[in-house]
Design a protein around this nucleic acid. Structure first.
Length: 289
DNA sequence: CCACAGGGCGGCA
DNA sequence: TGCCGCCCTGTG
């Protein structure tokens, strides 16, 4: 990986095969990135607005600088991890095509609080709706960051801010029955932020048990939070798409917990990465029947 | 108008 | 412990 810095832009070379914006932003791990007309993606991370474009072998981060690249983007885009090695390890006869299909996927390291709320919202919900609810929350209760390409961008509201809202306020954001779960999370986290931010130091099992104490967080949502914001790569979220693809590829069917257990024996420490390639493949309409 | 998609909770065996 | 009805919103 070679990086060049400009006034308001960072360019990355020699990472082409392991970085594909469409794969990264549309594999179900994040909800705040949107495709622009030129095929680039614009999103909000913390209080920054970033645009990501791939042009041939060049990856261009627009609207940013060297300081933010080093302090935010290296970790956020997991740039120090060797995805080539992971893909080689996962490319057995069953997974070869599936890994190839999503070869530019990287697992983002997102904020714990935003990820917690985002995946509570994801319960029994579709991606388009989840994105809409998160946008509503940010626009109405986050703070204004700035304009980019003529659009307004807002940060995700803090736990303290959401804790001041009523269940009715939250329902106005179209959270539906999840409003009381979000309130529960905000109350817990605003009272004790250390609790949430220290979960990453626990084992996978311990952290999952802890995060499930929040109402609205069960096995699937909990595994998503651990994988997408706490670097727990043993995590293997099983939703309806994962059930379908695991049955098709490995002839495994059963309860989510049973499927997760089997994933551990097949993929080991790479379960979370395998889950992303499988989910992306299934969700992009590549399932049979 | 109705059917359906999509995780977790809570009540009831 | 396991099962099942229900929660909410948008789309077809």
């Amino acid at each position: 990986m070679k990086v060049s810095f400009y006034k308001n832009k960072v360019e990355i070379r020699e990472l082409s095969e392991e970085f594909e914006p469409k794969h990264i932003f549309e594999c179900g791990q994040c909800f705040r990135w949107n495709r622009e007309e030129d095929g680039s993606y614009t999103g909000v991370v913390q209080n920054k607005v970033l645009n990501v474009k791939k042009s041939g072998d060049l990856i261009i981060l627009n609207n940013t600088n060297k300081k933010d690249f080093e302090s935010i983007w290296i970790d956020y885009f997991d740039l120090n991890r060797n995805y080539s090695k992971i893909k080689t390890r996962l490319s057995d006869s069953n997974l070869k095509n599936i890994v190839e299909f999503g070869k530019g996927i990287r697992i983002l390291n997102q904020d714990e609080w935003e990820t917690l709320v985002s995946f509570i919202i994801s319960a029994n919900n579709r991606i388009l709706m989840i994105k809409r609810v998160i946008y509503n929350l940010s626009k109405n209760h986050g703070h204004f960051i700035g304009h980019y390409r003529g659009k307004e961008y807002y940060s995700f509201p803090t736990a303290d801010k959401i804790n001041q809202l009523s269940e009715k306020d939250l329902r106005l954001m179209k959270t539906g029955f999840r409003a009381k779960y979000i309130k529960d999370a905000a109350e817990r986290v605003s009272k004790d932020k250390e609790w949430l931010y220290n979960l990453k130091d626990m084992s996978y099992d311990q952290a999952l048990e802890e995060i499930k104490k929040i109402k609205g967080v069960g096995d699937k949502v909990g595994n998503c939070i651990l994988l997408f914001s706490m670097k727990k790569h043993e995590a293997f979220p099983v939703d309806i798409w994962m059930k379908r693809i695991m049955e098709q590829v490995y002839n495994i069917n059963g309860k989510p917990e049973e499927i997760r257990k089997k994933s551990e024996t097949i993929f080991g420490q790479y379960s979370g990465f395998a889950q992303q390639y499988l989910f992306y493949y299934a969700s992009q309409g590549k399932l049979k029947e």
